[in-house]
Design a protein around this nucleic acid. Structure first.
Lengths: 182, 182
DNA sequence: AACCGTAGGCTAACGGTGTTAGCCGGTCAA
DNA sequence: TTGACCGGCTAACACCGTTAGCCTACGGTT
């Protein structure tokens, strides 16, 4: 098991900014994450933020990195703790739970173009390896991950018809993929 | 088979605007779809657009509706033309092909909050019913659709590692879901 | 003790966004 | 002929990310 890539460390003040950004993101959504709003929450003015971080993308990158670390930790733990017969189900349940608990961060990290160049190298792949560990075959793992992401992002965006029994939908997906894994 | 919900009709000039918006969207991406850029392409100024459409969201709604109609048509046709043993594979192939052929429109229609209130009622559900027709069970259908969307949106956003063999990943997913459908 | 560099605030401003208010010319019907 | 309205226009507003440049307070050096 390869070591977890670590995000580049931030100065203490930059960490405070990123923490405030996360609150703003989760409390009021992606559109509310504004340099001016972020500064106001810290009691300063927007241009002062640029003394600590180069631009808004850097704030987002820091948030995304933290999101991947937390999600990856949760998924690795889920796989490590699961009996083989329940790995897939447990992995999916963990994925869903974590994403729904941090919707703003999940969306930020997984929708739209990823600034891969600026991310800690290998971090996103590390966060995804539990899917491979769960099913033991790379393409099936990718398919399972795609299913999980599709489920989560559609749920977050309220794309399912009202009254959908998503628990059952997840269960059907788990059944489909479990039937192919060893 | 229920009839296809029709988007509310637009005035001729509004249709021209939406057509130009689509070109802009596909040629230069979502961020380039700007009221000023859109107006310029039509040889007018941005505020004049508001004589024909109430706001930018109306432009997007019109685009999304057209996207759903086209995608739904393609998927319904794919299901109608497929032998039962190949329905799932054909449906997925059609979904992928259509989405990759219209990436800007697909992203616009499926990522982020959907202004359901403003969409032609039932249109998005109609576009999704081929998944039900293909597998014959609503939860499995929802899971299959989620898989397809996850695959497409991750491919569009270049989220898979370089060199991924996505054809095989799609095939694995098709295999997983086919193994559960009648 | 005097100095100086720097860290970290600030205001003003620029170009971009969606959008509104208000003006004005042309067309077409009464 | 007149009047309504369609569909352009300019000016402007509030917000966005971002830059330039100023200023103050503090820590270390001479």
């Amino acid at each position: 098991m390869s070591a977890r890539p670590e995000p580049r460390p931030l100065s203490p003040r930059a960490s405070e900014i990123v923490a405030a950004a996360r609150e703003l993101l989760e409390e009021q959504g992606r559109d509310a994450l504004t340099m001016r709003a972020l500064a106001e929450r810290l009691g300063i003015r927007a241009p002062s933020l640029y003394k600590h971080l180069p631009d808004k993308a850097a704030v987002e990158v820091a948030l995304i990195e933290r999101g991947f670390v937390e999600l990856g930790d949760a998924l690795h733990a889920a796989v490590a703790d699961s009996a083989p017969s329940h790995v897939v189900a447990n992995l999916l349940a963990t994925y869903r739970k974590h994403a729904l608990a941090n919707p703003g961060l999940y969306r930020l990290a997984t929708s739209g173009a990823l600034p891969r160049q600026r991310l800690a190298p290998g971090l996103d792949e590390w966060a995804g390896t539990p899917f491979y560990l769960a099913v033991g075959e790379p393409h099936l793992a990718q398919a399972l991950f795609s299913f999980a992401h599709g489920m989560v992002i559609l749920e977050l965006d309220s794309r399912y018809p009202d009254g959908s029994d998503l628990d059952r939908t997840w269960a059907e997906g788990a059944r489909a993929f479990s039937s192919l894994s060893p």
